[in-house]
Design a protein around this nucleic acid. Sequence first.
DNA 1: GTCTATAGGGGGATAGAC
DNA 2: GTCTATCCCCCTATAGAC
Lengths: 251, 251
Amino acid sequence: MEPKPRLQTKAPRNDAAKGTRPARAPRSPKPAANLSGDKAAETRRQILLAAASLFREKGYKATTLRDVAELAGMGAGSMYYHFASKDAILREVLDVGIATIDEAVRSAVAALPADATPAERLREAIRADLRALLQTSQYTPAYARIYNQLPATIKRRDHPRRLAYLTYWRELVFAAQRAGQLRDDLPVEVFVEFLVGAMSRTTEWFNPRAASVDALAGWIAEWILDGVGRKGAVTRQATGRLPLPMIEAAG
Amino acid sequence: MEPKPRLQTKAPRNDAAKGTRPARAPRSPKPAANLSGDKAAETRRQILLAAASLFREKGYKATTLRDVAELAGMGAGSMYYHFASKDAILREVLDVGIATIDEAVRSAVAALPADATPAERLREAIRADLRALLQTSQYTPAYARIYNQLPATIKRRDHPRRLAYLTYWRELVFAAQRAGQLRDDLPVEVFVEFLVGAMSRTTEWFNPRAASVDALAGWIAEWILDGVGRKGAVTRQATGRLPLPMIEAAG
DNA sequence: GTCTATAGGGGGATAGAC
DNA sequence: GTCTATCCCCCTATAGAC
């Protein structure tokens, strides 16, 4: 077990040595309300952030409330002042995670100039999706990683939001197809699952020191739209030696 | 809590009603050795298969040995005759999972005619990878899904195998690039992570009733090699309105 | 609001009968 | 080889002091 890092969204709490309880700075009975809300709200955020980070790293079941409390700098029992249960923390992490990426993609696309082409809108959506996953939020990668392993009851609860997100992507892709910028024979639903899934998997391997998120987004958009094959190169022989049945419909 | 299905690799065990212990069919002291090995080996496989299936579905920590035992049709304590610990089961599931997909891809490519082009070899690798993930094995999708959430000690143990697998993919991609079939500016390491990760994510959404695995493999190969953009369509304007920095090196 | 202590339950692992 | 019973630890959640 390694030394325990702590989230540092606000001033770090003390890690004072064994035994002695450090004196807490006396609080005035009515502190001026700071901009980010009162103390309880701030502590809540600390807990959620710690939970999201650990859920992402180890999964939901493997993360104990003691882990979360330690990362948030408090005792495990104290968290029950802010949340009713571990499940309640999970639900809020998931809600924030899907809301963050959904909002990020929609608003990024909406912010484009009115004359942006459907393909440009698709590129922008790819960039916004990856930003939310890889640099904006802890909640979004936590969501992407643990969602499918959760009990059906919890998945059912978040399913409408997830569907709305995928639906938006389908609209983007359909629009590009109607505009003649994507192949007519593209099975849109399957392609959207593939693309959104591929992007969410980047959280497993992306190294921010090797490339910027925007660089990665640019690459992926180009690979997907233009392909990695060299222009004019023959990537497929016409011998029929490798039959690729592509007749079935996609649901 | 649904009714409990059981793996049916061999004849189903009885689900006899409460209390009464059903009589077990008397076994001859020396049954003829069946083709798939002795009874212990068969039971071992049952346990591993049940574990892989549940690990894939719920994750490692969320899967209890009681779950595994129930799906394998035995009491939880009985499994300790075959495995030393839950960890030992996990290790074997992981080993089989990575070995299966590695072997599947290498042998599929090796089986191609000697004059197959590098791009054809890449297509075949994509098909073999997806077959291992989506139809051949329970172990491979379990591996793909849970690997990154496991404790560092276990990941370290399997890291060489995983690296060897990725290295093989890099060689395939490099070869296609050298042969002039892929773009010269393709950052191979990043691309391989993207491609392999994207394929492993298909286990989260692929619906075998909507399309065949080979159809999906054909689509993905085409999307990646040729792109989804319509030939001749402008997918990117030259206005510079959307700068895409792609200068950083990839590790 | 946060602390410590602990209740209560579940899960990995072991023991000994059969 | 598999069963049942059980040990013991850890985890979620609660209680009551401060």
